[in-house]
Structure formats: structure tokens, C-alpha cells
Amino acid sequence: MFVPRSGLEVLKPYSVEEIQWPIRLDANENPNDMPQAIKTKVIEKLAALPFNRYPEISAQSLKETIAAGFGLTAANVLIGNGSSEILEALCYAFGGAGRSIVYPSPSFSMYGIYAKLADSQPVPVALNADYTLDADKLLAAANEAAASVVLLCNPNNPTGVVLPPAQIEYIVANTKSLVVVDEAYHEFYGKSSVNLLGKYPNLAIARTFSKAYGLAAARVGYLLAGEDIAQTIGKVLLPYNVNALTLATAEIVYNMRQEFAVSLAENSRERERMTAALGAIAGVTVYPSQTNFLLIKSDTMAAMVARLSARGIGIRDFSTAPGLTDCIRIGIGTPDENKAVLEAVTA
């Protein structure tokens, strides 16, 4: 008789409403399509791509391109089908039965799922009331659980709050666990822990092309780490895990990443404008963000969500999630989309 493996019956899958909102601010996507200069080169490249051939099994070309940007070698880089695939594989490679994986909460909801899928014990550590992290509390939890992995999302999703570089180094320096800093929103923040890689062998950095670089449709991410860490994780990734179309596109995007400076600057301006405008509404709290989204809280959140929905604006409702009572996350859209948000919430 065949039955699902034990534990799956209580595991909640990652799910969001599949609604084609006229204004989509629910997935932290770049609201602008790929810059035309990049799109032209991508189309030219794909037109010459042999679709009958498998992609590079090791994604060597993209690895070398990314490594050169950081002064590393290709052996320090791992390419995945989104950074999510790499994080899952990392938990599988360094987790396992009898091992623990520690992470702040609330944070990216998949961390706990990755831990459970790897037969590891998830150990969420509650953030402070203002969503900042108590580093000593996290380290104490990691020490008590003898954690094999510590996951840190910086800036954090869904709160938008950052961990200062000094705090991250303090954590890395004071634990024997593998510390993985998920920098999915790095480009909006501008500060990174990459400079610590040479100093601490227990550090790895994950990044994605899905947010600032607008490649959510292509699904590609990467990990920067010591050669031994990258090699170990690579053992549990499937062969040809990233398709040739995505690899070709990602390499062009990375080489032309300066083309996104305009959209990044617009995001920064609009984020500050939205923070001020939403924060001026009575009863609304806007948490500080260094990302392309805002977490806001209101005692009348249900009514606010209804007004946004009625105007065709999709947001992420976290109001019933642990640690996020009465909170929603709103992506930073185009100026016109943000104007529509403000009109809806002040109606």
C-alpha cells in the first residue's frame, strides 16, 4: 500500500491567490518590464539558441560572469532555479534528521517548510515588537538547538526591516552554524555581507534575479560561498536544473545590470513617498523598509483590504499570520499604481 511520507499531512504548501489583478502589488515584483536595451539582446541571443540541446550542466558561463563581479571564482558560485531552489537544497544538504534550522520569525514563510522537507527541526525565533532582531536571542536559540543552519533574510520579507552589517557579522562570528544571508532584496538596500565571505568560512550569501532585475518569470538565483559549501549543495541539485533560456537571459541581465538604475531610483523615491503618505493616515503604522514593498498595520485593516480589492489592487494580506496581526504588505508600484493605492486607502 502506498501512503505519503509522514509529516506531509500537516505541512501547509506555499500558496497565494491566483488572481489577475489590474494592479499587481502582491508578489514584490518589479512593476516595470525588462529595459528595452536588455530585451533586444535577449531576443537576439534566444533566436540563435539551439533548443534541441541541453543547457550547460554546471551553468559555468553564468557562474564565471557572476564570480567576476565579486572577485571570486566560479567554484564559489552556485546557480539555481530561483534562490528558493538553492535554499531548499542547502537545508537538505546541511540539515536532516536530528538537526535544527534556526531563523527569525516572521520572515520568509518557506524557511520553515524547507526545514521540514529536509527532516530538520525548524526553530523560529520571534522578532522584537518593531520587527528588529535580538541577535543574542537568536544565537542562544542556535546554541541550544545545536543548529546546523541559521537563515537570515536581509532586508527581511515581509517586514522590510534590515539587519545592520555589524549585527550580521556578530552573529556569524559567534556561532558554529552555517549562516545563510538571503539577500533577495539587496539591490534596494545597497549593503551586503559579501565582504565577510573571505573572513568567515561559515557564511553563505543567496541572491535572486526575480526582484530588482525583474526576472521573476525566468526563475534564477545564485549562492556565493566557500568552495566546499557550494560543492556540497551542488550534490543535491538535479542535473540541468536551470534551463538554457534562463541561463542565457540571466547572463545578459547581469552584464547589463546598470540598466536597472533608473527603476531602482524610482523605487526608492516612490517608497519614501508612500511611506510618508500612508504614515500620515490616522491609525496606520508603516514599518521602515529598504525593499520594494511596505508592511503596514491598521486596526481597520479589513476595511482597507476591501477598498483595495474593490479597485482591482492586489496586495498580500498577512493580517491573520503569526506575528503579523492586522498587517498587509504592499509592493511599490509605478507612480500611477501607487497613486491608485493612496486613493483607495483614503477613500
Rank of each mutant, 00 (worst) to 15 (best):
Met1Asp: 08
Phe2Ser: 09
Pro4Gln: 11
Arg5Asn: 09
Leu8His: 14
Lys12Glu: 13
Tyr14Arg: 14
Glu18Cys: 02
Arg24Met: 11
Arg24Val: 07
Leu25Met: 11
Leu25Lys: 13
Asn32Ala: 12
Val42Cys: 05
Val42Asp: 07
Ile43Arg: 12
Ile43Cys: 03
Pro50Ile: 09
Phe51Cys: 00
Phe51Met: 08
Asn52Lys: 07
Ser58Ala: 10
Ala59His: 15
Lys63Ile: 03
Lys63Phe: 04
Glu64Thr: 08
Glu64Leu: 08
Ala68Asn: 06
Gly71Ala: 08
Ala74Tyr: 01
Ala74Pro: 02
Ala74Gly: 13
Ile79Phe: 08
Gly82Lys: 03
Glu85Phe: 05
Glu88Met: 04
Ala89Glu: 00
Tyr92Met: 08
Ser100Tyr: 05
Val102Asn: 11
Tyr103Leu: 05
Pro106Phe: 05
Phe108Leu: 14
Met110Ile: 09
Ile113Val: 14
Ala115Leu: 06
Ala118Gln: 13
Ala118Met: 14
Ser120Gln: 06
Pro122Lys: 10
Val125Ser: 03
Val125Leu: 03
Ala126Cys: 09
Leu133Ile: 12
Ala135Thr: 15
Asp136Arg: 10
Ala141Glu: 08
Ala142Asn: 04
Asn143Asp: 15
Ala146Thr: 13
Ser148His: 11
Cys153Glu: 13
Asn157Cys: 11
Val162Ser: 10
Pro164Leu: 09
Pro165Lys: 06
Ile168Ser: 00
Glu169Arg: 11
Glu169Thr: 05
Ser177Glu: 05
Val179Pro: 14
Glu183Phe: 10
Glu183Ser: 01
Ala184Phe: 12
Lys191Asn: 04
Ser193Pro: 07
Ser210Phe: 06
Leu215Asn: 13
Ala216Gln: 15
Ala217Lys: 15
Ala225Thr: 08
Ile229Met: 03
Ala230Val: 15
Gln231Val: 07
Ile233Lys: 01
Lys235Phe: 11
Val236Ile: 10
Leu238Trp: 07
Pro239Ile: 13
Asn241His: 14
Leu245Tyr: 12
Thr246Asp: 00
Thr249Phe: 04
Tyr254Gly: 04
Tyr254Val: 00
Arg257Thr: 01
Val262Phe: 10
Ala265Glu: 11
Asn267Glu: 02
Arg271Lys: 14
Leu278Glu: 01
Ile281Leu: 12
Val284Arg: 04
Val284Met: 01
Thr285Cys: 06
Tyr287Glu: 03
Ser289Asp: 04
Leu294Trp: 03
Leu295Tyr: 08
Ser309Val: 06
Ala310Val: 02
Ile313Gln: 06
Phe318Leu: 10
Ala321Val: 02
Cys327Phe: 01
Glu337His: 02
Val341His: 06
Leu342Lys: 01
Ala344Ser: 05
Val345Ile: 14
